[in-house]
Design a protein around this nucleic acid. Structure first.
Lengths: 223, 223, 223, 223
DNA sequence: TATGAATGAGCATTCATTCAT
DNA sequence: TATGAATGAATGCTCATTCAT
């Protein structure tokens, strides 16, 4: 019956909304407290749902976090792929990528940090050993492959741009993967800056700064 | 009496050794599990001392971690200041710094990572708000100032080298602090590399890579 | 809806019952072991609830104890005030008060004893320094004032009766407060009787005994 | 050999002194913190002896406390017996006893309170169940009999005085044991006065107060 | 003998997760 | 479906007591 269809549809819609709401609340909490320190109570407070309800939508705290990270990664990949396909010079696209990643990091606040840093939790959560390339011990989770795929996609997209820049003569002849590694490092590191920053940089200033150094380096060039 | 002196000396020596042993065990555990996930039981297992004994040497889990971090920072500062005073070209010293930091990060494994990343725990532990430049609320701890001092010292030492390079014409005219920020970011980011690294780089290769990009940048220079 | 109201009501009722049940279990345990020696595990065993559940109902062991004491005090005050307002001779009311307090002490077993005696624990728990009239150091707790208020109320009510007895010529002209102090002492002391009592007195016998001595004293009066 | 005798004597003397010193320190600590809350560390700090040394002189924390209590009791008995044998009127001796006990309680501060009040600890310590006349479960300790003997001696001495007073016509014809019970209660209770005491009484004032009420009672006597 | 060091057993409290309605 | 209630398994920390010198 149509009626039932509609009702079901509405229900599903509602469900999706609730889930999204919980995810956002959780993201906020994880951002502020980190994975270990965040409690499901915190999240249920923030989401204004009971703890039991949280567990109706997600199997576990780690699943919840996992999904947040996965969403972030997916969104990041989408954007990065879009940028990489733009009809612009390699340098322009690199600049845009820097801008995107910096603003993305900033909006996702600590999620990326948590993902990259709370290694031991991540190992448990994702069943992956980030450091040691070790695959999951208990096979319940097939997640890590998904993650790795996304990360690889992102990495490849960036490599491709740089390679194109090299091919077109914009960039000097370097190993594209290494350049990409360096750019990734700069961005990660720039985002996770330590406790010392007298001056706060806007996204634009940060982009300019990273871009400038990544392209030109520090050394004086004879001209 | 000589005899007593010797005995006392031996005892003191033993104490120092035990403390160091515990610190090393704790460093290992924290490295593997992060601060929050590491339990004092883990540490006591690793150190082969009872939990109560751990508490004879350290007042709390956070004190223990705090001391590890502080030791690391002190050691790092010492080395960095030594390097910065060497009678070499700025570029050479930059290279040496890169080499030192990369190998230091590697040896200290995740400690630096934990310090930089488990923000919320660190806030509690050190009484400092890393993100917001906020000074400690309760003055019981005078630690954060010590930490900031060390970090500042390190930063200044690196700035000075770069400024000298600029003054001597080795480097192009950039804001030394910004360059330093970028170098710091590269190193941090390079160390905290994500889950994707087909190729493992040796310290030497890593140094070469970071050094090369930091000095030369990516862009092709006309000549 | 009626249905929901009923359900909510039942839930609330249940909650109250559970809380009361825990309080009773705790009272039993504290009575037997004293505050320091009683563990939350003991209480949870006695109450047949898990320890975590105990903590759902009470924030801490000290809160739990605190509530027991407060309840006792409130109940005592209520009864004493009621008695003091009765339309009877002062002597009759004194007798009734003695009876009430003795039976109350007996029913509350050691709670009063614990409150009066485990000073150092009480100081921490209630934030009050019983011995030195010192008010709480950290203002988080406003409890002690409540306690003192109740104790004062009780004391005043007793004083009033005695004063009335003096005014009416029933009692000899003494300082009412001092008489009250003595009566309080007798009751406390009689309850906290030492390890020597060949003969166990019933409440009625005890009342008679205390009453008789408090009113008549030991000395032979010439007649 | 004489020389050895002297040395041994000196040693013994020293031992006695140390023991006494520890006992005093412990008394101080127990007085301030109660039995449960006092730690052996506290005592060793106060006594300026290492914890291990404390354990050379006493088998356990409870032994230590036990000995303090026993000493107090012995001293009390000695004094009370002495007073009871004095060649004075019963009333005079009662007054002296009141004075002695009040000042004794005050000097022993909380020890008596602890003994009387931290029942559960006492049960464990002395192997006696004060409330229920139950004899020790584990027979390791034969202490309770000693205690009971002393308490009984004290009680009997007091009874005897009162009986003498009755026989001589000083006191009215009451059950001497009951009168003694009441006096004991007044003294205990007066010492363990609650948190309400606007006015602090000197030993002399207290004695006068207790004496007056114990002998005369509250009721107006016709004359 | 005196003591610094070591520890097993415990304790209050927390939290992810499950259950019953 | 949504949730308040319940809990087992930790976890950081303490302390009476023992050990080794």
């Amino acid at each position: 019956m149509k009626k039932n269809d509609l009702r079901a549809e509405r229900k599903l819609q509602r469900k999706r909304e609730n889930k999204k709401f919980i995810l956002e609340a959780a993201e906020e909490v994880f951002s502020q407290k980190g994975y270990s320190q965040a409690t499901v109570d915190d999240i249920s407070d923030e989401a204004q749902f009971s703890k039991a309800t949280i567990y109706r939508y997600f199997n576990s705290k780690s699943d919840l976090f996992s999904e947040i990270v996965m969403d972030s990664f997916l969104e990041a990949r989408e954007n990065l792929l879009r940028i990489s396909k733009k009809n612009q010079s390699a340098a322009e696209r690199v600049e845009e990528i820097i801008h995107f990643i910096l603003s993305y990091f900033r909006s996702k606040k600590n999620i990326a940090r948590i993902f990259l840093m709370e290694r031991s939790s991540m190992k448990q959560i994702l069943g992956m050993d980030i450091d040691n390339h070790v695959m999951p011990i208990d096979s319940k989770q097939h997640i890590p492959d998904d993650y790795l795929k996304i990360i690889k996609d992102i990495f490849e997209a960036m490599c491709k741009i740089i390679q194109e820049g090299i091919d077109s003569g914009e960039f000097r002849e370097v190993d594209a993967r290494e350049a990409c590694l360096i750019l990734g490092a700069m961005l990660r590191g720039f985002n996770f800056k330590g406790p010392l920053h007298e001056k706060e940089y806007s996204i634009e200033q940060s982009t300019e700064l990273v871009y400038s150094f990544f392209l030109n380096g520090l050394k004086k060039t004879k001209d």
